[in-house]
Design a protein around this nucleic acid. Structure first.
Length: 105
DNA sequence: AGAGTGACTCATA
DNA sequence: CTATGAGCCACTC
């Protein structure tokens, strides 16, 4: 069991929950907003996540590639959800970041 | 304290 | 395209 007492964990939750439908975010982007340089920690936090309220399927790496270790199932499941929200894939595992990357204003 | 691990990213070759 | 090495930081043993 992963220790989720850290403040970082909550921040990741809050931020990911704010991602609107049809948008995605990268690990590096989240890490930067949370004041860290470590994108691994973001992925690690989401890996320990099992809360269905957190749309972790909207979080992808910097190339727009989906994660292979998706908590709710396979990466295929993640892809399916994104497609239903209107996020187009430019390849089998890559989303179009140019159009769907969500940036805070 | 030290070593290993990890849903990442960047630079180099 | 692949392969390494490094940086990053929390966790476990």
């Amino acid at each position: 069991m992963i220790k989720q007492n850290s403040n970082f964990f909550e921040k990741v939750y809050i931020l990911v929950k704010r991602i609107p439908e049809g948008k995605v975010m990268t690990y590096g982007q989240i890490a930067d907003i949370l004041g860290t340089k470590d994108a691994r920690k973001v992925g690690w936090s989401l890996h320990g996540n099992q809360d269905p309220k957190v749309p972790c399927h909207r979080v992808v790496n910097k190339e727009g590639k989906v994660a292979l270790n998706y908590s709710m199932g396979d990466w295929r499941e993640q892809k399916r959800k994104l497609l239903e929200e209107g996020v187009a894939f430019i390849d089998e595992m890559y989303v179009d970041l140019k159009k769907y990357l969500w940036q805070m204003r």
